[in-house]
Nucleic acid binder design. Structure first.
Lengths: 202, 202
DNA sequence: CCGGTTTTCCTGATAGTGTTCGGAAAACCG
DNA sequence: CGGTTTTCCGAACACTATCAGGAAAACCGG
């Protein structure tokens, strides 16, 4: 079984993909430094010692760059999901997921905003990238289903709670842990609710 | 006790404020129709049959327009807060607040985004407008305190929960009620948690 | 009604954005 | 070396917010 394409194509593609990655790296750096909307093709080209128009050799538009960042972000999140340890204690699993998610947000606010808030005007992910986002959701959904939570309402409640903690953390205390430290309590609250346990308060 | 300023000043100010309001109305319409970032000074001026530069007679910048919308939004929200009925049942009060807030978001997504998400690049409210936003928060805080919830952690948990419901509603089902119908359940969950009640599930 | 003051408005220009076109330059490989 | 493909850039377009200066208009006291 051999490739139908000549090898020099591969090498060209390799170079192409290489500089494409350079552009994406520079884009990440720019976005990390100045926020999602600080991404400018002119500044990006300047950082890479080229003219802005040259970027169009690698990406058909600025939104396409965002789209790649979007896809990469979802892959990273999906990857972290895979690392969740299974456990007999549902609360332990829920706690891991919540921490995973809020940490993902706090680690790089811009990335979280790109994936979950509509911070970039008019940006919509491509079908392929959107599929990754759907994967993330279904991953979470099946993780909860494995705990016996197969009701849609329970899932929606869970996502609202966790997303609420994440976005409040970013908005009100981006460098602190004001909402992060509420996570365990939130997990308890949610678990008590869906599993039905007595909750006397000290 | 008479005014120190001559009357013609008042009349000029009146006209000034009148067209200022016209601009804001047109801005609301534009934002309502096409989202927060659809606000363009050129289009705005066109709608009002004037040149874009003339707008600068009434607002020093585009952000100043946003700022007025921001302030008006906060006043509206504050107003709705005032309408909350007092009750012996804390859950009833919490339910009202939650519904109030999520409805406020669902009624006009753009307004909610302006107040609570950072959808407009580089926009920051003026000190006066920000003071209104602080008022909203302290209003909510004292409403919860009146129910015996004077712990900061409880308040943060509450805002995270409600904000999570609101933002998920806007993001995933803007024209439906997928998260709105979870509100009562969310209130129960929160109340059970903070007040410590038994919650067996059917 | 007139004259001076104030307010409003527009013409023209600046600097910035993403993007398209067309051709030159460079890289590549048989 | 020759021909093909890929990469790059100069010029230009359409759009954005905004600034400067002067003309037009509104206003009001005399």
């Amino acid at each position: 079984m051999h490739s139908a394409e000549p090898r020099h194509r591969d090498r060209r593609r390799a170079r192409h993909e290489a500089t494409k990655q350079e552009i994406l790296d520079a884009a990440w750096a720019m976005v990390r430094a100045g926020g999602l909307n600080a991404l400018s093709l002119r500044a990006l080209a300047h950082d890479l010692d080229m003219e802005p128009q040259s970027l169009y050799t690698y990406f058909p538009s600025k939104h396409a760059v965002y789209d790649h960042l979007f896809a990469a972000g979802n892959r990273e999140l999906l990857d972290r999901f895979q690392r969740v340890e299974t456990s007999d204690d549902p609360r332990h699993v829920l706690g891991q997921i919540a921490h995973l998610f809020v940490s993902f947000a706090a680690d790089e606010p811009a990335r979280y905003e790109l994936l979950f808030m509509r911070t970039v005007p008019d940006f919509e992910p491509s079908p392929e990238s959107y599929a990754l986002a759907v994967d993330v959701v279904s991953q979470a959904r099946s993780a909860l289903a494995a705990l016996g939570l197969d009701d849609d309402a329970d899932f929606d409640m869970w996502t609202a709670l966790v997303a609420g903690l994440a976005s409040q953390q970013l908005a009100n205390d981006p460098h602190g842990d004001r909402y992060i430290r509420l996570i365990d309590d939130a997990v308890t609250m949610f678990a008590d609710h869906v599993f039905g346990t007595r909750v006397p308060r000290s």
